[in-house]
Simulated assay, not measured.
Amino acid sequence: MYRFIDQGVSSLSLLKPEIWVHCPACQKLAKIIEIQEGESETVKVFCTQCTYRKALQHIRVQSYDYMRYYFNLNQNMAEWSGTCEVEINTKCKICKEGKYKYLRQYTRKSLIPREITVSCNFCLRESRFDDSAYTLRKVSYSKVGFDPYYAYPLFLNIAVRHGQICVYNPMHLEILKSFIQADLRERKFPNYNRSYFSRLPAWIKSTRNRKEILKAILRLEQMASTIQPLTNK
């Protein structure tokens, strides 16, 4: 009997060290990687086959399960028709002890008030803020088959009878395979809802679908094995 012990693997850890996606130019394998440059961190995507290269905007992720992702943009918001988030985090200039703090989502930009009234959390003095004083973000939600940050289509993605099986990289695929083929699944940490495996759809976790899913995983392994190792670009 094969036993799998869930040690609390999070979605965040599965995104490292890279995300495999389809190149938008040639549809071959491209990789999203984080690069440490001194004290700063940049995110880049590069194709392993063609000349496609792009520096990606750093994204501040709020949700521990990475189902939400945020683009820190005050510019080009006129093109966005979806959910927006307004944040105010400003020190009070009167009492110099408290802050004006505000965080709220709006289903579209037109619903945001022209001025937002916020009270200082120390002296309770009210102040009004317009769009020149607050941070405005557009909020998106991840889609099945796309990476949860930049919405590139995932390279290791395959359709089965009940839905799609998609992983970020070969390491993610290996971990998912170990979970699926286990006869006994256990966990050894208190907060189960923070685990990647707790977020999997019921049809993936069902033993009834084990053979079909393992066949799909085998096909994904074959796809990954055909990728030739590359020198650093």
Rank of each mutant, 00 (worst) to 15 (best):
R3A: 02
D6R: 00
Q7D: 12
Q7L: 14
Q7K: 15
G8P: 02
V9N: 00
S11G: 00
L12K: 08
L14G: 11
L14S: 09
L14N: 08
K16N: 10
P17Y: 04
E18F: 09
I19C: 00
V21D: 02
C23Y: 10
P24N: 06
A25I: 12
Q27F: 07
K28V: 00
A30S: 03
A30L: 03
Q36A: 10
Q36T: 11
E39S: 06
T42W: 07
V43P: 05
V45K: 07
V45A: 03
F46D: 06
F46Y: 14
C47E: 04
Q49H: 09
C50E: 00
T51C: 07
T51F: 00
R53V: 07
R53D: 12
K54F: 01
Q57F: 02
Y64T: 01
Y66R: 02
M67Y: 11
M67E: 09
Y69Q: 06
Y69V: 15
Y70E: 14
F71R: 12
N72Y: 11
N74G: 14
Q75F: 06
Q75W: 11
N76P: 11
N76H: 14
N76R: 15
M77L: 15
A78D: 15
A78R: 13
W80E: 14
E85N: 13
V86K: 05
E87R: 15
C92M: 03
I94Q: 10
I94F: 10
E97G: 15
K99W: 13
Y100Q: 09
K101S: 08
L103P: 00
R104L: 05
R104F: 06
Q105W: 08
T107V: 15
L111V: 02
L111F: 06
P113Y: 00
R114G: 09
I116G: 04
I116Q: 13
T117F: 11
V118K: 06
C120G: 08
S127I: 04
R128L: 09
R128W: 02
F129A: 03
D131C: 12
T135C: 04
R137S: 05
R137L: 06
K138C: 12
Y141F: 14
Y141K: 06
K143W: 00
K143T: 05
G145Q: 08
D147P: 05
D147I: 00
A151M: 08
A151I: 01
A151D: 15
P153R: 07
L154I: 02
L156D: 04
I158H: 04
V160L: 10
I165Y: 00
V167L: 08
N169K: 09
M171D: 14
H172V: 11
I175D: 05
I175V: 11
S178I: 02
Q181V: 15
A182F: 10
D183G: 12
D183K: 06
D183H: 11
L184R: 13
R185W: 10
R187E: 11
R187S: 13
R187M: 13
P190S: 06
R194H: 10
Y196V: 06
L200E: 05
P201R: 04
P201S: 01
A202R: 13
W203E: 08
I204F: 07
K205C: 09
K205P: 07
S206F: 07
N209L: 09
L214K: 02
L214Q: 04
K215P: 03
A216L: 02
I217N: 04
L218K: 15
Q222T: 13
Q222F: 01
A224R: 06
A224W: 04
T226I: 09
Q228A: 10
L230F: 05
K233P: 15
